[in-house]
Amino acid sequence: MVSISVIIVNYNARYFLSNCIESLFESVIKDQIEIIVVDNKSTDGSCDMLREQFPTVSCIANKENIGFSKANNIGVGIAKGKYILILNPDTLLRSNTLSEFYSFAEKHEDFGAAGAQFIDGSGKYLPESKRNFPTLKVAGTKLLGYSKLYYSNHIERDQIAEIDILTGAFMFIRKSVYDKVGGFDEEFFMYGEDIDLSYRILKAGYRNFYLGNNRVLHFKGESTVKDQFYLKNFYGALGIFYKKHFPEKKWLYTPIDLLIKGIITVNSIGLPKKTEQAAEIKSFVLIGEAQECYAALENKLKPVKSKIIKTPDLYAEGYDYVFFDSKSLGYSEIIENIGKPEFFGVKKRLLSKDRSFYLGSDYSDRRGEVVEF
């Protein structure tokens, strides 16, 4: 029986997608989940990788990039689970994440949806884990660069609480609720659709929750290049939201549109010319038991110093990079350790299960680093 259908919309995130699926396969209720990947015409071999490495995963290969909302609706359309999990390909889950979300939802009859606590590839907490409803004041100050009102700072990071807005990178939703409110609004190509869906779930009489006791690693930005197209979708989503839900406030439309256009223009000036990360690794620690992989890393990177240790608690300062061996440790242990104080200031990289590549992300506004070896 399928309890949870995991829907992943993918766009050129092959290596991160591979690790994401591996983390789902570590779930303690893996026999109760199905994984559906909707690919938006990737050109990086994502679909071939899925067919070769994960034959049990359903893959819908779109002939064009139809956007996040429409792709998710297609995936949910064939889902068999009582619950669905909208999940980004650049995420990693602990082995008990799905079981804990399922158990929590089953205890609440008016459960609509729930989100988790996000940490990024450096182990840093991401404040967008919990957000307030974007009133004009909240959204306006956010657009102007003031985020205090935008985030639900009254809720502690590790707390379990009701919340207004969930994040589309991880949305655990009762499928009957998703169907009742009509799923994602396909007018939102990318961004803003999670705000809209969260709001409609609340309007339908259900509750949204933040389960801060469960951490999800979100590398961020893997399916998005920060360009003009991104800016127009990211900031333009607010205009779509207000025109949809507040038709009586037409006098606000023009000021909002002008503000958004101005912000897009200003932000366009500072767009990074390159999104790739070039890294020279002078010293590293490999945490795991992969001696052959350690030798291969040394041969490829030729560091000034390096060492291999079996567990994270043996780590000592004085190294630029920490490599976590996902095969030796498992994703749960990596997620638990990557944000610990002893690893602050050290760049982190994750070895794939087959140890053929490593990946990581040091900046939330750039594409991550993937290196084959």
Rank of each mutant, 00 (worst) to 15 (best):
residue 264 I to R: 00
residue 294 Y to G: 00
residue 271 L to T: 05
residue 113 A to Q: 11
residue 44 D to K: 10
residue 80 K to Q: 14
residue 217 L to I: 05
residue 196 D to A: 14
residue 196 D to R: 05
residue 340 K to S: 12
residue 331 Y to A: 01
residue 113 A to P: 01
residue 216 V to H: 02
residue 67 G to M: 08
residue 111 F to P: 01
residue 349 R to D: 03
residue 5 S to W: 04
residue 45 G to T: 08
residue 60 I to V: 15
residue 232 K to A: 10
residue 183 G to Y: 01
residue 78 I to Q: 14
residue 24 L to K: 03
residue 359 L to R: 02
residue 270 G to D: 06
residue 278 A to G: 07
residue 332 S to Y: 06
residue 137 K to D: 14
residue 20 C to F: 02
residue 36 I to M: 05
residue 240 I to D: 04
residue 340 K to P: 04
residue 123 G to C: 08
residue 165 I to L: 05
residue 96 N to I: 07
residue 317 E to A: 15
residue 310 K to Y: 00
residue 288 G to K: 07
residue 305 K to P: 07
residue 331 Y to F: 14
residue 117 Q to M: 12
residue 312 P to K: 09
residue 273 K to C: 05
residue 184 F to Q: 02
residue 244 K to T: 12
residue 313 D to H: 08
residue 223 S to V: 13
residue 117 Q to W: 09
residue 61 A to C: 15
residue 197 L to R: 01
residue 337 N to H: 11
residue 19 N to R: 05
residue 105 A to M: 04
residue 235 Y to E: 06
residue 65 N to Q: 11
residue 95 S to W: 01
residue 265 T to Y: 14
residue 158 D to T: 12
residue 108 H to G: 03
residue 50 L to F: 09
residue 122 S to C: 14
residue 45 G to S: 10
residue 167 T to E: 12
residue 5 S to I: 03
residue 73 N to C: 08
residue 20 C to A: 13
residue 100 E to S: 14
residue 249 K to Y: 09
residue 263 I to N: 03
residue 193 E to P: 03
residue 366 R to P: 02
residue 120 D to V: 08
residue 139 A to V: 04
residue 282 K to P: 02
residue 336 E to M: 12
residue 29 I to T: 00
residue 242 Y to W: 11
residue 183 G to K: 00
residue 180 K to P: 00
residue 170 F to A: 08
residue 115 G to M: 02
residue 121 G to T: 09
residue 233 N to A: 08
residue 333 E to N: 12
residue 302 K to F: 08
residue 341 P to H: 04
residue 2 V to P: 09
residue 352 S to R: 00
residue 223 S to I: 10
residue 321 Y to D: 06
